[in-house]
Amino acid sequence: MIKALWRNIQKDILIEFRSRIIVSIVLSFSVIVTISIGFATGGIINSPLLHAAILWIIIFFSGMNTLSHVFFREIEESTALFGVIHYPAVVIYLSKLLINCCVMVVIAIMVIIIYVFVISVSVYHGIYLIAILIAGSLSLAFATTVIGAIAALAGARGGLFTILAFPVVLPLFTVAIQSTARCFEQQVFSPLSAIIFLLAFSMVLGMVSYLLFPYIWREF
C-alpha cells in the first residue's frame, strides 16, 4: 500500500515537474495576483479583515487551478484507466490528495510571503498565522480533491469546479478568514478553536471522500 502510494506520487511529481503546468501557471498566478493587488491598492489596506479576505481569496483561486488539474490531466490524456488497471482507486485518491495538500501548503506559504512583502500589513501573531494558513490550505485540499475529480469527470474545465467547490468550502473559508484577521490585530487570542474546526472539517470530508472516490473513479 505504502509502496503503491509512493509510486503514484512519484509519477505525478515527475509529470508535474516535466509538464510545468502547476509550476508555471499556478505559482505564477498566485504571485501575479498578489502583486497586482498590492499595485492596485498602493500597498495600503487598513482593515485586518480585508487583508485576511484578500489573502484567502488569492489562495482559494490559486488552488482552484491546481486541485482539479491532477484529475483533468488523467482524463484528458486518457491515462485514467492506466492507473485503474494497476492500482486500487483509493491509492489513486490518496496520492492525489497528498499532492494537492503539498501544493496548497506551498501556495499558502508563498502567497503570505509575497503578501507581507508587497503590502504593508503588520503581523502580530506570526506563528498563529502560519498555523492557520497551513490548517486552512490543508482543509481546502481535503475538501475539494474529490470535487476536482467530479469536475474532471464531468469534462468541464473552467468554472464548474469553482461553482461546485465554493459552497462546500465556505464554512472553512469564513473561519479561516476570521481567525487570520485576528493575527493582524494586536489583541491576544487563541487560534485553537479555529484550527480544530479546520482540521475536523478536513478529517470528516477527507474520510467521506475516501469512501466515495472509488464510486466515481472507474468505468473509463
Binding site: Q10, L14, S78, F82
Partner: peptide, 18 residues
C-alpha cells in the same frame, strides 16, 4: 488504444509505475 501511457514519463518510468 484507450489506455494511454504517461507521455511525460520515459518507457522505463512507465514500467516502474505500472
Amino acid at each position: 488504444p484507450y489506455i494511454n501511457v504517461y507521455k511525460y514519463l520515459t518507457a522505463l518510468e512507465n514500467i516502474t509505475f505500472a
